[in-house]
Structures are given as C-alpha cells and as structure tokens.
Design a protein around this nucleic acid. Structure first.
Lengths: 189, 189
DNA sequence: ATCGTGTGAGACGCAAAAGTATCAACACTG
DNA sequence: CAGTGTTGATACTTTTGCGTCTCACACGAT
C-alpha cells in the first residue's frame, strides 16, 4: 500500500515517458490494483490534474526557495538553478511538457507567475550590468525549463550522474548569460 | 487538399504537443477528413513511424550539412547549431521526444549515429584545448537537443523571434563550453 | 457527356480502455 | 469475537478510438 506520494511519483514517472499509458499500466507501475487507483482518483482526468498541480507547485516552491529578488542576480540565478536541479531527478518537471492549454486556469496562472519572477530576475541582472542585454529574458526562461528536462532525461537514461546536473545547469546557463568585463558583445548576425 | 508535406507538418505539430491525440484530431488539424487520413496512412503506427523517420532524417541531414569533422571544433559546433536552428521552427525535433523504445530499430540507430558524431566533435574540441574538459559530451548532446526544442517551443508560442534562435543557441551552448585562456575551471562544488 | 480519380460524410464492427459494482480476504480496533 | 475499513480480484457496462466500407459529390481529361 504505497502512500499517495509514492503513487503519484510512480504515475508521474510512467506518464512522463508514455503519456498514452492506460490506467491499468499506471496501477501496475504503482503496484496497486486498478480498482484502488480509481478509488483514489475518480477519473483519469483527475489524476493528471493532480499530477500537473504537484509539478507546478514544485516549480513554484523551487522559485520561492531561491529568493530571486534577494542579493546579486548571478547569485540568485545560481540558487534558482540549484533548486531546480534538486527537484529534477525523480520526476521533475517532465509533467510540465503538456502544459499547453488543457490544464486548469489557476495552475497556468501559478506557473506564469513563477516564470515572471524569473523574467524579472533576468531584467534586474541586465540593468545592474551583470547580465548581457542581448539575451532576452524569455530565452532564459525557456532554456532553463528545457535544460532541467534535459538533465532529468539524461539521468533517467543513465547517461548523466544526478549529482552533476546542478553544476552543468549552472555552467550552461550562467556562462551564456554572464557579462564579462572587457568582452565585446556580439551583434545579432 | 494539402500536400503530403503539409499533412505531416500538421500532424507533427499536433502530436508533438499532444502525443495522445486521436486520428480524428490529426485529420482535423490537417484539414482533411478522417477517411482521407487513413487512405494516406493505413494505420496510426504507420503515421508516427513516418513522422519519426522524417525527424531523424532531418536531424541526420543537419549533422551532415554541418561537417562536424572539419575545421576547428568551435566553428564546427557553430555550424551544427546553425543547421539545427534552421530546422527547428516548423516542426523540428519535437517528434523525437517519445523516441524511447517504440520506434523502429534502424531509426534509433540512425539517431544514435548522428549523436555519436556530435560526441566525437566535443571530444575533439576537448583534446584540442578548445573546450573545457569538465563538461561531459553527453551533456552537450542532451542540452543541444532540448535547447532546440526550447527554441521551437518559444517560436511556436510567439515568445521568441525565429531569426534569433540560432544566435541564442550558439551563445548558450558555446559560452558554456568554450575554454578561455587564463580562466580557472571550476571544480564540481 | 462520361469516365476515372480523389474526397468528405457517415455507418459499421471490433477491441481496448474508462468507469462502476460486487464480493472475499485481510488488517486493525474495541 | 464482532465491527469497521481498505484492498484485490473479477465481472460488467459504457465509451472511445481504430480501421473498413459504402456512397455521393466534385473535378479534370477525353
């Protein structure tokens, strides 16, 4: 009898890999019977909604924990990446992939609000001269999101050590964004 | 009556967002009737196989065009990123997401071979002293793959200009990988 | 005008999956 | 022991999607 957390973790892991998996497969992955699965979640939609909710909450919690408004922008971004790397192995943000239009409006608003805090962090760093100004904040949000997915995927496939992901995330994101003294900024050619 | 290309583009766009979409939805997205869709592809499996084939071939063609074995590693990687950025808007590699075990073995082999060429390019750059050695080639492959997805997604959502994607890809990947003279390499802390 | 081709609309059978209901087994509690 | 509650197994109905088929219509070529 796995706890509700273990059930959701197993379901997230399976559905991230195979979004079309049936409720029977989900139940098998969680080591419970199909009947019990339907007792906990009255429908498939309710299950994926709960999964989306957890993913968005984990993302929001990571942004909260990073305190993106405090200190210098480089340090704040580094804290954020560390938080995001922490939650990626296991089930991570993979459930965020199909977060297009189907999810509940309040969840979308939560995710958007967290994205906005990251955007403001980038703008703050640009105004302070820490970040290059020819990299749009939107690209930072998008690349961070998908690089977290890249890390989780690499770990899942056994091609990346999970303890390395945080460092690699920081390297890739920060080195492409940080502005160095005396370095010319390339134009858009 | 959309051409076969237009049909496949529409199908790829939909299935990348919603891998569980039904054939009826695919037909609607391509603006043809369900009957016609089945006339062109005898089964759903045949459709997704064709989609996977196209995606893998586009990826392989991009690697070919970049000539990763020629010239210095930085330039070669820059060429590769430019090629990948070119194919991303439209439908890109999104169809590669569910390339886990379901696809045909020959396609998987093709994709793996192209990945290997990229890995060798990274190793070559590391041995030549152009790239830092504390970033595993596996991370480069994974991050490039998903950053291409990030670019395509940003363009699709209207948040990124497609002509900027190539430059941003280069900035993010190369600045995190290139080794600079006189710069200390951070340990894994 | 008529033939051939491709298309959309719709109905059909079939299988798989969703969701519901029942029952027996087991654990925990007093 | 009696009572309560959760689970698994199983059978069942309903829904959904796949794949096939037929038919009518539009179109171009002859």
């Amino acid at each position: 009898m796995p706890s509700s957390d273990a059930l959701l973790d197993a379901a997230a892991g399976l559905l991230a890999r195979r979004p079309a998996a049936s409720m029977a497969e989900v139940a098998a992955a969680a080591d419970i019977s199909r009947a019990t699965l339907f007792r906990r979640f009255p429908s498939r939609g309710a299950l994926v909604e709960e999964l989306s909710r957890r993913a968005v909450q984990a993302y929001t919690a990571a942004v909260d924990a990073a305190r993106p408004e405090e200190g210098d922008a480089v340090g704040a971004l580094r804290r954020l990446l560390a938080e995001l790397a922490r939650l990626s192995p296991g089930y991570g943000l993979l459930a965020l992939q199909p977060i297009d239009e189907l999810v509940e409006a309040d969840l979308l608003a939560l995710a958007t609000a967290a994205d906005d805090r990251v955007r403001r962090l980038v703008h703050r760093g640009q105004e302070a001269g820490e970040f290059r100004v020819d990299v749009p904040a939107e690209w930072v949000v998008a690349s961070v999101t998908w690089l977290v997915v890249a890390g989780a995927d690499g770990v899942r496939l056994g091609r990346l050590a999970s303890r390395d992901v945080g460092r690699l995330l920081s390297t890739t994101v920060l080195d492409g964004l940080r502005r160095r003294e005396g370095e010319a900024i390339a134009g858009s050619g």
